[in-house]
Lab assay of single mutants.
Amino acid sequence: TFVALYDYESRTETDLSFKKGERLQIVNNTEGDWWLAHSLTTGQTGYIPSNYVAP
């Protein structure tokens, strides 16, 4: 799992909003700078900017 370093507000319907400190499970990280992730807090799935999270 990864932890959010910053808050992120989604800009498209495929993005995932999250708050700093939220735990995220990475589903697919082969898309370059945008990873498909599942929030362990909200249960939602969407794309996140990879530079906003850390292991």
Rank of each mutant, 00 (worst) to 15 (best):
Y6C: 14
Y6G: 06
Y47M: 11
V27L: 15
V3N: 04
E9Y: 10
N51W: 15
T42I: 01
V53M: 06
I48M: 02
E31V: 12
S39T: 02
T14P: 05
A4I: 03
P55L: 10
F2I: 05
G46Y: 00
N29D: 14
S10M: 06
V53Y: 04
P55Y: 09
V3M: 08
Y8Q: 02
N29A: 15
L24T: 00
S17F: 04
W34V: 08
S17P: 07
L5M: 09
W35N: 02
A4L: 05
E31L: 14
W34A: 06
Q44M: 14
T1D: 11
E13M: 10
Q25M: 14
I48G: 01
Y47H: 05
P49M: 06
Y52F: 13
Y47N: 05
S17W: 04
S50C: 13
D7K: 03
R11I: 12
Y52S: 15
F2L: 07
D15P: 01
L16K: 02
Q44V: 07
S50M: 08
S39W: 00
N51A: 14
D7F: 02
T14D: 12
S17E: 06
W35S: 03
I26H: 02
Y8F: 10
T1G: 07
K19W: 03
A54M: 12
Y47L: 09
S39V: 03
G43C: 10
L40K: 06
D33R: 09
G46P: 00
F2V: 14
F2S: 03
Q44Y: 09
F18G: 00
A37Q: 00
R23L: 15
N28M: 10
L36G: 01
N28G: 15
A37D: 00
H38E: 11
L5Q: 06
I48N: 00
I48F: 03
L24H: 00
T45E: 09
P55N: 08
S17C: 08
G46K: 01
T42M: 03
P49Y: 05
F2E: 01
E9Q: 11
E22A: 04
E31N: 15
Y8R: 05
T41I: 12
N29W: 12
Y6P: 00
S50Q: 07
G32N: 11
A54G: 10
H38K: 15
L40Q: 08
S10P: 09
T1Y: 15
T41V: 14
S17N: 08
V27R: 07
G43Y: 05
A37W: 01
Y8N: 02
K20C: 07
W34N: 06
Y8I: 01
V53F: 07
P49F: 05
G46E: 00
T1R: 07
P49N: 09
K20D: 02
D7T: 06
E22D: 14
A4W: 01
N29G: 14
F18V: 09
R23I: 15
E13W: 06
W34G: 04
W34H: 07
V3R: 04
G21F: 04
Q44I: 08
R23K: 14
G21A: 03
P49Q: 06
D33N: 11
S10V: 04
K19T: 07
F18W: 01
V27K: 08
N51F: 10
S10I: 04
W35I: 09
S39N: 14
D33W: 09
I48T: 01
D7S: 06
L36I: 08
G43A: 05
Y47G: 02
T1E: 15
R23C: 14
L40C: 13
N28C: 12
A37G: 05
Q44L: 14
L16S: 03
I26S: 04
F2A: 06
Y8D: 00
I26M: 06
P49V: 01
V3G: 02
L5D: 03
I26D: 00
T14Y: 14
K19Q: 08
Q25S: 10
D15M: 07
N29H: 12
S17G: 10
V27M: 14
A4R: 00
G32I: 11
L24I: 07
N51L: 08
S50N: 07
I26N: 03
K20G: 03
D7G: 04
V53W: 05
G21C: 07
W35G: 01
P55A: 11
A4F: 01
L16E: 00
F18P: 01
T1S: 10
Y47S: 04
E22W: 03
G32P: 15
L16T: 03
E31W: 12
F18T: 02
W35T: 04
G43D: 06
N29V: 14
E22G: 01
T45K: 08
A54F: 09
G43H: 14
W35Q: 04
G21I: 00
G32K: 14
N51S: 14
T45V: 12
S50P: 12
A4P: 01
D33K: 09
L16P: 04
A37I: 04
T30G: 14
G32W: 09
S50V: 08
A37K: 00
T14R: 14
G43E: 05
T30C: 13
L5T: 04
G43Q: 06
K19H: 09
L16Q: 02
E13L: 11
E31H: 14
T41Q: 11
T42R: 04
T12M: 11
T41Y: 09
S10T: 06
Q25N: 09
R11E: 13
S17Y: 03
Y52G: 08
T14F: 14
H38I: 15
K20V: 08
T12P: 02
T30P: 10
F2N: 01
V3Y: 10
F18Y: 02
S39K: 06
A37V: 13
D15N: 10
G43R: 06
L24K: 00
L36E: 05
Q25Y: 14
V53A: 05
A4D: 01
E31R: 13
I26Y: 02
K19S: 09
F18E: 00
N29C: 14
A4T: 06
A4C: 08
P55F: 08
T30Q: 14
G43N: 09
D15T: 08
